[in-house]
Design a protein around this nucleic acid. Structure first.
Lengths: 211, 211
DNA sequence: TCTTTACTTGACCATACGGTCAGGATGCGC
DNA sequence: GCGCATCCTGACCGTATGGTCAAGTAAAGA
């Protein structure tokens, strides 16, 4: 007699609990860093006993690894927009929008990623060397093509990409600083729109890609 | 009989040891985060017994606090260049150069700062609310004046400042990622120059402040 | 030289943390 | 309904860590 209200099937519960744990872990790792986070805190936030965490994720490190890998996936998804674009104004503009939206919706993930990279990427170094490297090379080539087609000014694509990453992720990673400078209030919808517009304005004009 | 070769006077030794400890602490906090850093590790790196650290800095938190405050001072010093400038091209250009130089010379400090802010600034929240707030308001006013004088395009000064911070500090905080994408090699002198030039080119042109 | 003050340090302590485990509960296939 | 595999969890353990302390050493001051 499978119930649909409260998912009690084993598979469903498993997935649900894993999701619950991963979500709690992301928050705690973001707030406290890997070293400062405790399994007990994650357990409390997930509403599960600590020993249960170790049933799903044998070690703290394995849990952390899973969190970071999930974030990396989200990170890469924003790339699709870049690829589908027809030119720099559309591609880079949409990429900025997408990454700003990620910063707004998943600030914890962005922080965990930043923390991981700052600590010399002990867990996802191989991803940096393979997947991220390929992604970056591919995007750099697209930008170089746009430049050779005269659709934007000649600019080192890598530094442009770093600038895009830095600026968009700043709104998540340094969100607390921004909020403090905003009088202690989170940015409003209008302010987020203003941020997006300002960034696109500066960068698109800066690379000579405005209509 | 005060010796000048090896500073054995109490005051000199005190200052020397404090500097030694603070320098080691900055590195360890940057590499491991506050939670991951251990007093033993800092002691080893400073070449002193652990108990000696606790003589100079009673708690781990007090040591951390001192490190963060020192970094904040460096951070603010780069402002002088901004103030002394005659117009946006000179002021913002020089500010970018100065902040990039800090990222290059003191990456550990930048990382500690980033980490502190990411964790909701438990130690320097009051600085954010007072000193940083005033600094930001002041700089925003200067930019607004430049805009009203027609020396640059109308742009929300805050988002421009965030962009400057984000981009320049990215080269320190995400230095490991940049190094990995650079084939595992640290950026050369020429590459650092290229970075500075690219950033200035995009931003100065983006805000309509090029000669 | 003698006293006092500042500094140094090995040994030690309480605590908190990651991780284990045994035994019980629960749903699943037959 | 029954046996089995999966899931759950309170109690427990070893270790590492921040911090203490008392006893010693070296410099400053008189």
């Amino acid at each position: 007699m499978p119930q649909s209200k409260r998912p009690n099937s084993k598979k469903e519960r498993r997935l649900e609990n894993e999701k619950l744990i991963l979500s709690a872990a992301e928050k705690v790792f973001a707030e406290a860093g890997f070293g400062g986070a405790t399994m007990q805190l994650i357990a409390d936030m997930a509403g599960l006993p600590k020993a249960n965490l170790h049933y799903y994720f044998p070690t703290k490190e394995s849990l952390y690894r899973q969190v970071v890998q999930n974030i990396f996936q989200t990170w890469l998804q924003a790339a699709d927009i870049f690829d589908a674009a027809e030119g720099p104004e559309e591609g880079i503009g949409a990429y900025i929008d997408a990454k700003m939206e990620i910063s707004r919706r998943h600030p914890a993930g962005s922080k965990v990623w930043a923390s991981e990279v700052m600590h010399r990427a002990p867990v996802i170094q191989d991803y940096l060397e393979t997947t991220l490297m390929e992604w970056t090379d591919g995007r750099a080539k697209i930008i170089d093509r746009w430049i050779s087609e005269g659709r934007m000014a000649p600019i080192n694509p890598r530094h442009l990409l770093y600038m895009l990453w830095a600026t968009t992720q700043h709104y998540a990673d340094f969100g607390h600083q921004i909020e403090t400078l905003n009088g202690g209030e989170a940015l409003t919808d209008a302010q987020w729109e203003d941020a997006k517009t300002s960034i696109k304005q500066i960068i698109l004009r800066g690379i000579g890609a405005t209509g």
